[in-house]
């Protein structure tokens, strides 16, 4: 359902007032990548697969989507069927918007928070205890690990509903 994904992506960006023309701007691309990672974590599944890259969770598929959109005209969009979101999906998008307003201008924060979330929930670890996870976060994100307090990050992610911790 790739066409649907493109239309949904564009519609969500419009709702969040995000400019998808991000080819020349690494920061914009990073924000897009991380926001859609968080969107899926909140429960709106666009079937976009993420892997762990140099700057944390990253989806090559999502890159293809926004590079494709950049080459489309309004006339092209007229071809496509309309998509709509359920009330539950709109609530998720609304929640993402709140996070975007709070974190959106801070790419370090987005990179570190999503990296911690990825390592916690998506990376296969032999040992799931907190200290081991802390070591792995430090291994892959040494610069940002010094900048942020790991325990506070976990607490923030818990408050926002991304993590269910005791």
């Amino acid at each position: 359902m790739s066409i649907d994904n493109i239309i949904k992506f564009k519609k969500i960006c419009d709702l969040l007032n995000i400019n998808t023309n991000a080819k020349e701007d690494f920061s914009k691309r990073l924000v897009l990548q991380k926001l859609f990672y968080l969107l899926q974590k909140l429960g709106l599944n666009l079937e976009i697969k993420y892997n762990f890259y140099k700057y944390g969770p990253y989806s090559s598929d999502l890159t293809d989507i926004y590079y494709t959109i950049m080459n489309l005209s309004q006339k092209d969009f007229n071809y496509f069927p309309e998509v709509s979101f359920s009330e539950e999906e709109l609530n998720i998008i609304h929640k993402l918007n709140t996070i975007y307003q709070e974190w959106g201008n801070n790419i370090d924060k987005l990179e570190f928070y999503t990296s911690v979330l990825y390592i916690y929930t998506d990376m296969y670890l032999k040992n799931q205890n907190k200290d081991c996870i802390k070591k792995i976060v430090n291994k892959y994100k040494p610069r940002l690990f010094i900048k942020y307090n790991f325990d506070e990050v976990l607490e923030d992610l818990k408050i926002q509903g991304f993590l269910k911790l005791p």
């Binding site: 892997n51 762990f52 998506d122 990376m123 296969y124 670890l125 032999k126 792995i136």
Partner: peptide, 18 residues
């Protein structure tokens, strides 16, 4: 064998040892 490790490797999910 570690079944979860094997399955994560097959699905291309990241594991501790990149």
């Amino acid at each position: 064998y570690e079944v979860n490790l094997i399955c994560n490797l097959i699905e291309g999910n990241e594991i501790e040892d990149l």
